[in-house]
Simulated scan of single mutants.
Amino acid sequence: MAFLDIHAIQAVPPANMNRDESGSPKTAVYGGTRRLRVSSQAWKRAARKALEADSASIAPSERTKRLPEQIAASLADRAPDLADKASEVAQAAVSDVFKVKTKSKKEKESGKERLTTEYLLFLGHDQRNRLIDALVKNEASLAEAVNSPKDSAKKLAAALKELRLRDTVATAHPPAVALFGRMVATDPTLNVDAATQVAHALSTHRVDSEFDYYTAVDDVDNEADETGAGMIGTVEFNAATMYRYATVDLRSLVENLGGDIDTAADVAVAFVRAFLLSMPTGKRNTFANNTRPDFSLVALREDQPVSLAAAFERPVSSDDGYLGKSVKRLVTHQREQDTCYGTEPLLNRAVYPAWVAETVEEGEGLELPSSTPLDTVLTETRKKVRAVIGGDDA
């Protein structure tokens, strides 16, 4: 077993980056106290988009209902014999692979046909392209089936079945699918168990929501008719110092990537960077809450993944900032946990600016891990991860 744990303490100014159904910032009660919460789904999407945007070596993926529409567009462009029946072939192909229902609907204004599936499908661009290539390669046989004057639907289904299109999406998963997994409700055999677990981010202290009462002024001079604001409204927000945590099951990652150890090591460290530096985009234009973690800790473990959230089960209290006290709690909790259970990370590296250390009230026996630049931490982590999952000298 091998697990890569990622911990972060991050101060976030006024923000509403993850809203509930009423538009309020999400919260949770932990340790009997109301905390700010950012859901794992919100941060996973932010990390996934950052992962694929920031690394040229990370193959892209897509979660969409519009796979049939994408396939139909490619067939219309690349397979002349299927152009008139591209929508029909595309829908049948997606149904053949995923056992999912598809539907066709024309937009009233543009008249454009929209082809969608009943739920979102998650696959890599390469997987989608291999599926399309297989259809184009067999253009003649598919055209004969779909244009048959009798039982064309049955003949098309039979022709598609012979192509074994399912194999194009059942293997060679992109990094995002390998990390975050995939669920196909209509065909569980296409499911991919996620190699990564991401916790809901929680504030280390109690939070109270506030409201921003705003007005908008009409720029057109119309004082005779409008003596006040052109619009008024409120936006709910809060601010907090948060604990964030994620872990990567490295053995599962290797398995999901077809046994490619080097790629798994690359993907693991790329995810560390993406997770630490990403931010959900809710109300970003309103609050510009673009912070980075103030303290990051990367730990490679062979025993089990270990969240340090319990360090904050008793909420941090302070009248001069939460950051230093939160960092102190985190470091102390990790060391006491490992002492108690007789464990020790194979690698334990921290990233933080010097001023953070100055905010930590160092008590008896407390010494912060030395700070190392993120790029250096990632290089060291990649080397150690490769050694451990490769069975080398760890």
Rank of each mutant, 00 (worst) to 15 (best):
A170Q: 12
I232R: 10
L156F: 06
A28E: 11
F312N: 05
G324E: 00
V38K: 08
G228N: 08
L82R: 10
V97I: 15
D393K: 13
E69H: 13
G258L: 08
D84V: 03
N191L: 07
G233C: 03
K155P: 09
R251H: 08
L135P: 13
Y245M: 02
L347H: 07
L323C: 05
S55T: 02
V267F: 09
A185S: 13
H205T: 04
V136C: 04
D84H: 09
A185V: 10
F287L: 06
M242L: 15
K65T: 11
R114C: 00
E62A: 11
D151G: 04
A134K: 14
P14F: 09
D193T: 14
G390S: 03
S61F: 11
V254R: 14
N147Y: 07
A2M: 03
L308C: 04
P13E: 04
R19C: 00
A195Y: 04
N16D: 01
L347W: 11
L276M: 08
S252M: 13
E361V: 13
L51W: 12
A299T: 15
R48F: 00
N289I: 01
K106Q: 09
P68Q: 09
P315W: 12
V97H: 08
T339V: 01
G111M: 13
S318E: 09
D20G: 06
A72T: 10
I71G: 01
D84A: 13
D84F: 06
L82W: 15
E139Q: 14
S40M: 02
A264S: 14
T247P: 07
V89A: 00
G342C: 05
N238V: 07
R206E: 15
V248G: 02
Q337P: 00
V169W: 14
S371C: 05
